[in-house]
Nucleic acid binder design. Structure first.
Lengths: 355, 355
DNA sequence: CTAGGTTGCACAATCGATGGTGCACGCACA
DNA sequence: TGTGCGTGCACCATCGATTGTGCAACCTAG
């Protein structure tokens, strides 16, 4: 009420000022007061008082007592990729919509660090965890299981908990078909002209490779050749892979599939080292979406995973609290070259102060 | 010890198993045991026991008692911009290095939402807060002050708390000079050929405008013309601004300055609506860095704020706990076209499982 | 042999919210 | 007048860790 109250108000402060007991105040302010047969009059009085004093419950105390913290965790490998930062943004919005406080953390693609990170989330008694692209989902699962923490895999599946992932196989096939057809417009194409860079031994990469080969088979017939460079999720290693290819062949493949935007950055690094050189009519497909990537000086087809639907589904699965691990596939979107899609940014009401 | 302990171990469990009191266990495990004159032998015994049981302290309880939660907050306007996602990534690393748990939240450029968001962080008793690009830094400041929460502004200054920001004026001037010089290589240029898009009435935009005009003045002499479109931080409004300019002039400016990557996306949207049309030899400067943006089919000069140094300095300021608000300027970096800089990603040890 | 100091730890209050339980009061009914 | 029930609330233990304080037991010096 007065401008200067030094400490944050507690239910005890409100108890004194209202004449009611602390438990009554607590019940009123957490909504259980009808169940506890508090009169509407008392409730209103306390609610008003709470507003005057800008009371907000101490979440630590609440969590300690009720062992529900109101925290919702999202474990990411990294942040600074369009895919993961959009996921963080979307997760934040959806968690808040559910009255949860989002806590986003990064495991940096290191199984040990992932586990430690989740351990520390557990120490904060988070209520649920989304595991997005963990290197070792099942290792993380064990930590969650020990702590009795509801959790779900997003984007990369685990065997021990339910997962919501993109349909990597279909997406990769559609992407590969798209770049092949585009490249064919510039002249005949052989299977050797169609290459893949990036990926490693995880579920997403394996599925994409299957889709990639399925598309090639559909166009060229079965062909098992040397048509891939597995580079992990490292820009610099990907750049080296392009470098090697370039040294061997004197040019880049006419048409290639890049496994993620992180690997795509490797192509940029390669190109900046060869500035001035022209790379002919390459056609690129990238299993990821980035608006700037879509406008590069060569045709770039991209795949945008449906992040918002994946998260939505994830929350649903957690709510339904099924026991048997399920895998839900979400269809990603093929994005044509030079396309600037709308994103979470567009939902902001941004005021323009001068025009 | 045994595989199946259903609940997480507490100091009381360890107290029973070790024969020591709970307070002794607590002191041993939080490092204050020397001060409490616990014998090294007892300490070791308890530490061993804790490891066996994978004990980790309940942070809620610790926070409740000591009113230090170990949480470090970062308030962002949004996530999915290279600038802010890199900031999140860097903040996370630096907070962890200091033994804090990073909590990143987004205020969505809405003063009201910013305040509510910080209120809820306060409810979790966070120990410190970085405010990055708040729309209303001083409004947020008041919330922090009421809660006695140490905080600091990053990237956009406030009047009431210390701030660490980029040198927007110098950066904008360098950027403007760079694009003008580049454009001059293609033929003579007048002041009217040099335009600015984006920004609104905040400190960063104002400083950048000053730098922009300073550079123009240096090249063309003083000239106060109609050379700006203020569009806020909205891609769609920026796209409209380009559209309007294009309708009036039949082309884009030879040379223009875009206030941020969010506005840059507006240019992409404009371009995707005019696909096939060629926009001549435009030269673009963007006050933000995005690796894909750097490789677009026209020269793009970019400015990369030194995020890691800003955060580092921010932590230092918080540690030094000065009272008078200070403003620290950090020099940003001019990035030439077609440059793929390394980022936090490169610090990850990514294993390649197959080559 | 005792006063005084040190060592090594236990005890108990406390942080703020929650929720089970108990109890006084009022009213209706027999 | 006594019994029974519904209403409206207060009391108190509890969550797990922290921390000020107290106190045996032992040692040392005089």
């Amino acid at each position: 009420m007065t401008e200067k109250e030094q400490r944050k108000a507690t239910i005890y402060d409100l108890s004194v000022k209202s004449g009611a007991s602390a438990s009554t105040v607590s019940a009123v302010l957490n909504g259980t007061w009808r169940k506890r047969r508090i009169s509407e009059e008392t409730a209103n009085r306390i609610i008003l008082l709470a507003q005057e004093h800008k009371y907000t419950a101490n979440q630590q105390a609440r969590a300690l007592r009720s062992s529900r913290s109101g925290l919702a965790g999202l474990l990411l490998p990294i942040y600074d990729t369009r895919f993961f930062s959009t996921m963080a943004q979307t997760f934040e919005a959806q968690a808040r919509k559910r009255g949860l406080m989002p806590v986003v953390v990064a495991g940096r693609r290191d199984p040990e660090e992932e586990r430690r990170t989740v351990e520390s989330l557990v120490a904060y008694s988070i209520d649920l965890l989304f595991i997005a692209g963990a290197t070792d989902p099942d290792g993380v699962h064990k930590v969650c299981a020990r702590a009795n923490l509801p959790h779900i895999n997003i984007d990369l599946p685990g065997k021990l908990a339910s997962s919501v992932i993109s349909d990597n196989r279909q997406g990769a096939k559609a992407l590969t078909l798209a770049i092949i057809r585009h490249a064919q417009q510039a002249g005949p194409l052989t299977a050797d002209d169609v290459y893949m860079f990036g990926g490693r031994d995880d579920h997403a990469s394996r599925e994409r490779i299957i889709g990639f080969h399925a598309a090639k088979a559909e166009i060229f017939g079965t062909c098992l050749g040397d048509d891939m460079e597995s580079t992990g999720y490292s820009p610099s290693i990907t750049a080296l892979a392009f470098e090697r290819f370039y040294e061997r062949h004197g040019l880049l493949p006419r048409c290639f599939f890049i496994n993620s935007s992180v690997n795509f950055e490797g192509l940029l690094r390669f190109m900046s080292k060869h500035d001035g050189e022209v790379f002919g009519d390459i056609v690129v497909g990238c299993f990821d979406y980035d608006p700037f990537g879509s406008f590069l000086p060569f045709p770039v087809y991209m795949i945008r995973p449906n992040i918002s639907e994946m998260l939505e589904k994830g929350f649903e699965l957690l709510d339904s609290a099924e026991d048997a691990p399920r895998i839900v596939l979400i269809e990603p979107q093929l994005v044509l070259p030079r396309t600037a899609l709308e994103g979470p940014l567009d939902e902001l009401k941004d005021s323009v102060t001068s025009v």
